[in-house]
Simulated assay, not measured.
Amino acid sequence: MNGVLEALRAAADPTRLRILGLLESGELTVSELVSILGQSQPRVSRHLKILVDAGLLERFREGSWVFHRLSLGAGGARARALVHLIPDDDPLRAQDSQRLKEIEAQRAQMAEDYFRKYAPEWDRLRQLDVDEEAVATVVRDMLPLTRSQKLLDLGTGTGRMLQVLGPDVGEALGLDNSHEMLAVARSNLTRWGLDNCQLRQADILALPVVYGTFDAVVVHQVLHFLDRPWTAIGEAVRALAPGGRLLIVDLAPHDVEELREKHAHRRLGFADEEVQDWLQAQGLTLETIKHLPGKLGVTIWLARRIGVANMRTETQSMNQGASL
C-alpha cells in the first residue's frame, strides 16, 4: 500500500503525469522532454527527480546524455496503470504524442541521412576497433547452422551477416529500412553468389514476416541506433520458431561521444545486465556471452527461445587482425 500511495503522490501533478505518458513508449533525454513539454530544464529535472525517487522512473547516464525510462517491476507497472487512466481524447496527451512523433521523425531522418551518406563504406565503419573477421569467426562458432534451417538478419545493412552465415543455411532473409544499404547488399549478394538469400525493405520494429518461422535471428550492430532496442528484440523473438536462437552483436559500453554526434548512434553500447533483462523479459534463455575487447569492444549474446542452459561468459583478448 505504501508503494501505491507514494506513486499516487508523485504523479499528482499534470506535468509529471504527462512525463509518465511520454516515457510509456520508450526512453527520452532530459532535453527531449524539455522540448516536448515546453518547460524549463530545471523544472523538468525537478519533476523527474520526484518520479525517480518514487520508483516510477529510472535514470541512467550515457556519456553527456541522461536518459529516463519507466522502471522495471512494480514501479513501472504502477506508472503504466496511472497513464492508462488518462482519457484517450485528452488534448494535452494528444499534443505530447504529436511532439514525440516529431522528435522521433527527426531522429529517423538523421539516421536515414547518415546511412545514405555512408552506405558505400559501411562495413569499414562497422569494423570499429575489433577485427571484422574475428567477429565473423565468433559468430560462426556460436551459431552453427544447417542447410535445413532458415535465417533472418535484422538491419542487414550491406549484407555482412548474410555473407558470414548465408552459405550454411537453406534460406536467409535480410531486412533493412534503407534503400541505399539494400542497393549495396544486393550487389554484394550477387558478387558472393548467395542465391539462397533474399532482401526486403522493412521496418525491423514491425516485421512483415510470418512469426515463429525462423530457426535463427541475427541483430548485428543495430541496437545502438534505435530509440527502443527492446522492441527490436521483441520482434526478433516473435519471428523465432520454438527452439530458435537469437544472436545479438553490438558494442560494449563506451564513452566515445563522437559516434553519437557524427554517426547517429543513439546508445553508447550496452551492458550485459541490460541485454539480459530484455532477453529474460521476452522469455529467452541466455546461453552465452562473449566479449571481444578493444577501445570499442564488441559483445555477442546468444539466447534460445526455449530450453535451459548454463550461461557462460567468455572474454577473448585479441589485437586487431588476430584470428580466433
Rank of each mutant, 00 (worst) to 15 (best):
A232P: 06
A105T: 06
T29H: 07
V217H: 11
L302N: 04
K101T: 07
T213S: 06
V30I: 13
S64L: 12
Q163C: 00
D88R: 11
G170D: 03
A119Y: 00
V249F: 10
Q280H: 12
K262T: 13
G63Y: 11
C197R: 01
G26T: 14
F60E: 14
R80C: 04
K49G: 01
N196L: 04
G75P: 07
G21K: 08
T288W: 01
Q221I: 07
V298D: 06
E132R: 15
Q149P: 01
A74V: 08
I248M: 14
G170I: 10
L189A: 08
A216Y: 11
N177S: 13
D13C: 10
Q201M: 13
I289D: 03
V237T: 12
V275L: 15
N319V: 09
A94G: 00
L125E: 13
R228G: 02
H84N: 08
H254C: 06
L145S: 01
G3W: 08
V169P: 00
M142P: 00
V218F: 11
R245K: 13
H220T: 02
D123S: 08
G243W: 00
L85S: 02
E58M: 14
H47F: 09
G297F: 04
E257C: 00
G73M: 05
S71R: 14
F270M: 11
F60T: 01
W301R: 06
A216V: 03
E180N: 09
P120M: 06
A322D: 15
G73N: 09
A252I: 06
F115E: 10
D129R: 03
E257Y: 01
L240H: 02
G294S: 12
R69A: 13
L247W: 08
L48V: 02
L128F: 05
H224P: 05
V52Q: 10
L194G: 08
A108D: 12
A239Y: 12
A271G: 11
I36H: 02
T137M: 10
D53K: 11
R59W: 07
R80Y: 03
D277C: 04
L165P: 08
R116E: 14
E273M: 08
P14Q: 07
V219K: 05
E62V: 01
K150G: 00
H68I: 01
P91A: 13
N2P: 04
N177H: 10
V184E: 12
H265P: 00
A322K: 02
V130F: 03
A271S: 15
I103E: 14
G174Q: 03
E104V: 00
A172D: 10
V52E: 15
A105D: 10
W278I: 06
E27W: 13
R46D: 03
R16N: 04
F67S: 09
A108Q: 07
R69G: 02
G243H: 00
E258S: 14
A108T: 04
Q95E: 10
R160Q: 11
V169Y: 01
G307C: 02
Q320I: 08
